[in-house]
């Protein structure tokens, strides 16, 4: 067998799942399984103890689906990447998520992996963090005794993606005036591990960048904003050459400093391309 013996649980409600999650010891939540199953196999191979219990969230229908209520997009935590990709609700600022989804791993993985799993798996390089920080998304959790908690994606990753609760959904406010750009650098190997994801959201006011949020995902740290880049861009005219100039204003502490010159160069090219993309739109 590929995995160590475990007890499988398939609750049908969030309440049941929380009850199990809070009472069982040595337990892991199963969303799409694309991280968990491989990590359980690896632990077994290395002779490391694996969790005794796995709680699947697959049968909890309220955790699935994408909907718009008023100006708010709600993404169920168990929504699979390809379902988010094909959602008709991805318009205005939400549309950037289609680009993000399209670039995640491979098609069977996109058919299995969930948005919630991508955010909460605690791998630093998962892709959803950067765009959802740029979009000022909020994560909503359920805990024991019906307690709920809402936290911005930015704060969630500042806290190293730690939680004892179950993520139920993510919300994003519609912002038709926002312009967004997304770039992703992937490792050239059989395993699709993104080295960098950068998402920049801005607004244009009199041909200038305003209210800019630039967020970065890197292999060595959780998704976070590049405040130095944001400060540089805000108030700047969308002139040609601004992207090149911006490269001298990056918070270099948040990038993968272990990387070789090629990767560092690719990071800079991606950030430059994202800013150039926005500059073009700001000029029209």
């Amino acid at each position: 067998m590929l995995l160590n013996p475990l007890t499988f649980h398939a609750p049908k409600t969030v309440e049941e799942a929380i009850e199990l999650y809070s009472t069982l010891g040595e337990v892991r939540l199963l969303a799409g399984g694309t991280f968990l199953l491989n990590s359980l196999k690896l632990l077994k191979k290395r002779g490391i103890k694996t969790p005794q219990h796995v709680i699947s969230l697959r049968k909890i229908s309220v955790l699935q689906g994408v909907k718009v209520t008023g100006d708010t997009l709600t993404i169920g935590a168990m929504t699979v990447i390809n379902d988010l990709f094909s959602s008709p609700h991805l318009t205005d600022n939400f549309a950037i998520l289609r680009t993000v989804c399209r670039n995640i791993s491979t098609n069977p993985i996109r058919n299995m992996a969930t948005v919630g799993g991508n955010l909460t798996s605690r791998y630093t390089w998962t892709e959803m963090g950067a765009p959802l920080i740029a979009l000022e998304a909020v994560m909503h959790f359920c805990g024991t005794n019906h307690t709920t908690e809402s936290i911005t994606v930015e704060d969630f990753f500042k806290n190293f993606a730690k939680t004892e609760k179950i993520l139920t959904h993510i919300t994003i406010r519609r912002d038709p005036a926002a312009a967004l750009a997304y770039q992703r650098v992937k490792k050239l190997s059989d395993v699709d591990v993104p080295l960098l994801a950068v998402c920049i959201r801005t607004h244009f006011n009199d041909g200038c960048f305003t209210r800019t949020r630039a967020s970065i995902n890197c292999t060595t740290s959780f998704a976070k904003r590049d405040l130095v880049l944001e400060e540089f861009l805000n108030g700047k005219k969308t002139a040609n050459g601004i992207a090149q100039e911006a490269l001298a204003h990056l918070d270099t502490s948040i990038y993968d400093t272990r990387s070789d010159d090629y990767k560092k160069s690719m990071f800079r090219i991606s950030i430059k391309k994202a800013i150039e993309d926005l500059t073009r739109r700001g000029q029209t």
């Binding site: 199963l30 399984g33 199953l37 491989n38 069977p108 993985i109 058919n111 299995m112």
Partner: peptide, 13 residues
């Protein structure tokens, strides 16, 4: 939908 059976717990489906 095409999925990968090597990373799917049988009980889950």
């Amino acid at each position: 939908k095409g999925i990968l059976s090597c990373i799917t717990l049988a009980a889950n489906v």
